[in-house]
Amino acid sequence: METIPITIQIVSITGALLFMLTIFRLIVRGKLREEYSIIWIVCTVLLIVFSIWRRGLEQIATLLGVFYPPSLIFLAALSAMLVFLVHLSVVISKLQNQIKDITHEMAYLRQDLERLKAQQETRATPSEPVVP
């Protein structure tokens, strides 16, 4: 009863710590923005808490009326992922809108720039005015 769970405990704690380390390294290198890392850090902390506090999962499961405690993990993990995926879709949609607006501005600037260049090349005859 005691020996096998302890092995799993060690494995899960090391796994969680390695995961957290990876997240930190990504932030330090500037490859992950802090706001998206929060959820991962929270997840890792939860993982570590339940790896150490083994009775916790069972207690919460009985409290919620779940007969098979591991299914609570699946439920929690799946819901968390679902919420996070929706959040990512929202972020992507916002980015797409911003890219579209920037593309428009860039196209306008390109046009202005080309007109200015053309004006400079033919300085003698001022062509149609460039709109500010």
Partner: peptide, 18 residues
């Protein structure tokens, strides 16, 4: 010819909005 040159392909809606 007066033209806009979009740096990224936006599709018809994005192009028209430009």
């Amino acid at each position: 010819c007066n033209y806009l040159n979009l740096p990224v392909n936006l599709g018809i809606g994005g192009a028209m909005q430009a």
